[in-house]
Design a protein around this nucleic acid. Structure first.
Lengths: 331, 331
DNA sequence: CTGATTTTGGCAAGCGGTTGCCAAACAATT
DNA sequence: AATTGTTTGGCAACCGCTTGCCAAAATCAG
């Protein structure tokens, strides 16, 4: 429980050199004589030395830790994002701190305050923070936003358009004329983006499209939309996310409406479990793991960039994944 | 991006006192005069002071960070564990670092080495590490194990027995005589525990029980068991976890076997999505969120305990959650 | 009102690294 | 061989906070 870790002073003594030499041998390869360097490394190995990250962080200000803030860690959308981020962070010798804001901007702000001093930068999953608060954070430490665009702040947002275009084309080819969009959080940038793109493509395809909700972006939110969906008379509906799609699918089936024969449903994200339903949910896939990884890469890039430029967007894209919840519109 | 944070020296200057007084005012309430303390607090507020956690960690050795190691962060079993742990950690002013070992003991050992110096203690979700490696880690920093018991190391393991007893009783009351257990990782302590308890209770209930697999503890692992399950002739099967249960349910249905009429299936854990299937999976519920929270509490307790005692077990228990995947055995 | 006791707050030494500066040692140049 | 240029590695200050020690100030007893 209490083996005291070796310090550079221990190594210095063992190797018969000055602590500063040890420091340089370990963190500035080439700065000192190769033979001395080898001797120091040998001593370090022998003592099973691992640098105290705090002692290192003090003078340099660099902690090699990155925070990833998510609104709800039990939301499966984040699983793969976290994995992708964790993987890239570890590859680069960084440690990822995952924090949850429990869908509350107050908690999020507090957590941010608690964590900010400990990390070199922050990635916001879906944040509830205002643009101002984000700018404020960005003034202290580099920030990367996932699925949101704020002027002057780095972001990673995949292109929603291909997936939506494909989904619309898919529904059009199945004869759907009047479709719906079950909306999620109105404050959400991505919700607006998806809705706007859907309108654009639906109109271009000669369909009419209506907005339903907005509801909570959860299974319950989907379930609660069944009356409104039914009342709207649409033959197909695209939901803000899979959670809502799954909730809707299950509630609608329970109400005796056949999916997909009487109602086609398209989700968004391809989360874990979206293929567990009967029928399995047709969905627009987001490359979540790559998004998480790219967010970390973007953050690391801002660490390098002394010119203050911030990376934007992403080469990532979305695409339709046709499963069982869509079929021909009833004649 | 670069606003330099205020230090206790800035506060000291503003409040007209010595830095050490500031330090005491902030971290040892009552140590100094109430008026002075108030003055310091006012100054701190004004400068928007937040202590540099690294500077604090250096002399004290306490980082107020806890690591939670999980084998696979995309495994839904961990979502709630992480949430519970994060919540309790935050409540106590600790920051949770979640690390993933990608189901590899090599990665796990490396990650552990990287993280250990930064944290006050470690919680192992399902670890692949050997008892020796765990003891080694426990020698450096306090360790808490979830779902595993190792001599001399603190653990949080809920009682599997009630849930299994209830599941057996449930199946017995439905007329099942010959049941199966689809096993997961053989090296897993909890897999053995579940199997042993199942044998005990099945025998007591006058049933026969066979072990099938072991397979991977994933949806694929469940899917791959369909032939063996079919060959075994069991009328009901309990799977090591829900992932396997879901995989089996879907594969078996796809093969034309009706669930639950021809085969009853009981999962384990009640993970996210286990109610998405048709029929929804009957499962033995684990109080995952509480387990995560209790693991953190256990760790915090060892921080306090100077006598080196380690907490064991948990008041948490398991219970059967009957949904749609179980019914009467065919006559 | 004086001596003893308790409060209060300053001083300074760390915690374990990093790094600018400099001198000694060595190599290269004429 | 003398001079200039490079390496190499030691010294010491510093990062921001904590804490043991001590003296001055305030409080309490007698």
């Amino acid at each position: 429980m209490n083996e005291k870790a070796a310090t550079i002073y221990d190594i210095a003594k063992l190797a018969g050199v000055n602590p500063s030499t040890v420091s340089r041998a370990l963190s500035t390869p080439g700065r000192i004589n190769a033979a001395t360097e080898a001797k120091v490394h040998a001593a370090a190995k022998e003592l099973n030395y691992r640098a105290n990250p705090f002692a290192r962080a003090l003078p340099t200000g660099k902690t090699r830790m990155i925070a990833l803030m998510v609104s709800d860690i039990t939301n499966p959308v984040f699983f793969k994002v976290v994995r992708g981020a964790e993987k890239v962070a570890a590859e680069n010798g960084y440690t990822l701190v995952v924090a949850e804001s429990i869908e509350s901007s107050k908690v999020e702000a507090e957590t941010l305050q608690r964590i900010l001093p400990s990390v070199d930068g922050v990635i916001f999953g879906t944040t509830r923070l205002s643009d101002d608060e984000i700018h404020q954070a960005n003034r202290e430490k580099p920030v990367v936003l996932i699925n949101r665009i704020v002027e002057g702040v780095a972001d990673v947002v995949p292109d929603n358009e291909p997936g939506i275009a494909q989904a619309v084309a898919h529904l059009a080819s199945l004869g759907h004329k009047h479709i719906g969009f079950l909306g999620g959080p109105t404050a959400s940038w991505i919700n607006a983006d998806r809705w706007n793109l859907l309108m654009k493509h639906a109109v271009e395809a000669g369909m009419t499209v209506v907005s339903i909700g907005p509801n909570l972006p959860t299974v319950e939110g989907g379930r609660d939309a069944v009356d409104e969906v039914r009342a709207s008379g649409v033959s197909a509906i695209i939901t803000y996310n899979d959670l809502m799609g799954i909730g809707l699918l299950r509630a609608v089936s329970a109400a005796g409406i056949k999916v997909p024969e009487e109602l086609s449903i398209v989700g968004f994200d391809n989360i874990f479990g979206s293929d567990f339903t009967s029928p399995p949910l047709t969905t627009i896939e987001m490359p979540l793991e790559r998004i998480g990884g790219n967010a970390v890469r973007a953050l690391l890039a801002t660490f390098e960039a002394q010119d203050g430029t911030v990376p934007h967007g992403s080469e990532e894209t979305t695409s339709l994944l046709v499963r069982g919840s869509t079929t021909k519109a009833k004649a």
